[in-house]
């Protein structure tokens, strides 16, 4: 009876771990799953396995996952507006957050399991570009949004390609800049 209940509960936690949208929660569900597995081993008279499962499965592996999750978690997008930087209004913020370009970028990084964080930068564009705190700088000018990046990784190329494939609807341009200035 207890065995069946444990197995069913393990199934529940396995499903929760798979279907959870928040990775941190999924790791915790996996740890609980491991702990239930250890308990099950104990019920089936395998205490040695139970100790190993409890220590490795829910201890070391959970921490390894958390350490893996810790690195490169947050992708910070800085939004610069040269005109409005001194008085950011709520309507401007919601206009940017709801714009198609920002939603597309956010969706792109969410699919790659990033937490996207949008920061409204109150400094000038040149300063913001040299600030290592931002991974991507989005500036709004008369024509729409422009994304400034010096990141040569494949992810950026992929994002650029995705935006190009969507056509003009997204209204975002990509600008490469280097240490010397905008190229």
């Amino acid at each position: 009876m207890v065995e069946v209940a444990t197995i069913l509960l393990m199934g529940v936690f396995a499903a929760l771990a798979i279907h959870s949208n928040v990775l941190r929660l999924a790791i915790i569900y996996l740890a609980v799953f491991s702990l239930l597995a250890a308990f099950l081993y104990l019920l089936y008279a395998a205490p040695e396995l139970a100790i190993a499962e409890a220590v490795i499965g829910s201890g070391l592996v959970t921490l390894l996952y958390l350490a893996a999750l810790k690195r490169n978690r947050v992708y910070t997008i800085g939004v610069v507006n040269e005109q409005q930087r001194d008085h950011l209004s709520d309507s401007y913020i919601s206009h940017v957050e709801r714009s198609k370009a920002l939603r597309e970028i956010r969706q792109f990084f969410l699919l790659r399991e990033f937490e996207v964080q949008i920061v409204f930068v109150s400094s000038a564009l040149d300063e913001a570009l040299n600030d290592p705190a931002y991974d991507l700088i989005v500036a709004e000018d008369g024509e729409g949004f422009a994304a400034f990046t010096d990141d040569e990784s494949y992810a950026m190329l992929e994002l650029e390609m995705m935006v190009q494939m969507h056509g003009s609807g997204s209204a975002i341009r990509f600008v490469r800049h280097s240490e010397e200035g905008v190229v």
């Binding site: 205490p47 040695e48 139970a50 100790i51 190993a52 220590v55 490795i56 201890g59 070391l60 921490l63």
Partner: peptide, 29 residues
């Protein structure tokens, strides 16, 4: 305890060693 009593109670080298490894992990946390 798990290591030293491994040959007549549940446990043994590997299990006890994993517990010892969790010391490093706890320190890291």
């Amino acid at each position: 305890y798990v290591i030293l009593n491994g040959h007549y109670t549940p446990g043994g080298g590997f299990q006890g060693g994993s517990v010892l490894a969790s010391l490093f992990v706890a320190r890291y946390v």
